[in-house]
Amino acid sequence: MVQSRSITPKVKETIPLESLRSTLLLARNPIVTPDLTPFEKVYYNYQEELERRLMWTFPQYYYFRKGTLSERRFVAAQKGPVTKQPGVFYEKGKPDVVHNRERRLKQEIVIPRQETEEGSSLDEINRPVIPNSRITKADEINDITSLERKLPRTLYLLIKDSKLGWRLPSFSIENTSKGLNEVAEEGLRKLGGEAINTWNVSNTVTAVLKFQNDKLVKSDDSSSDLTREYIIKSHILSGSFKPEDSNLEFAWLSKEELKDYVSEDYFNATEFLLSDI
């Protein structure tokens, strides 16, 4: 993924290349819609029930011609409401039935089961839709190296550095011929193999972290012996991160989990880059 247009860092003669690093913020976007809060759950349930209660009575005459076999089948399949009978006491009030529908409730429509020939695919069409579980195997065994975990959340790639602990993957710049984004992309492939497809959000950097003797300093610090890490934002589209070096520890983590892994300073400096969803 070599970009045609790239921005080369303007390096003065006086700044050594070792003091510049390119860091990659590689994100896996959510795969499923976000989890509903308890309130959202009951609210949407209420709205749906209300909509169904206020729905039009099913226009049976439109779909089934009078006197046909299909009409008879359809009518036979329906449960039908409780009807109003003279001299009967109804505990929940007299039924309010119009066009074979209780108007105080939603209408349940039963589709008659077809008598189908053997091997017909109609039964398969009628089968209920069962969504896949939102909790995957990786969630159950808490496999932090899997991309198929925490489906409704954004995950970020973290790598354990032997000296500095957990952090975003960071790469040194060897010469000025390549842009920061190219350095980051190539570095990622060197670490995690070619079987990964990423998409850079921009060739420009999103943030800068400043270090002094491997310790984070404030963003407005302007000492001469600083090491700067330029963060490039990117998404993983397909493939996976498979490190060549089996000793390399890596993890795909959401924002909250990331907090427990990285140092407090590091989290505070990068928090604004991370998504809450």
């Binding site: 309130f39 609210y43 209420y46 029930e49 209300l50 209660r53 009030g93 939603k106």
Partner: peptide
Amino acid sequence: RRAKLQYMSPLGLDEAFDSAYEI
């Protein structure tokens, strides 16, 4: 009394109300 007996509130209303009330 008849109207009172006949009345049915929409399903899920009480749960939604309670939840919203707490918030």
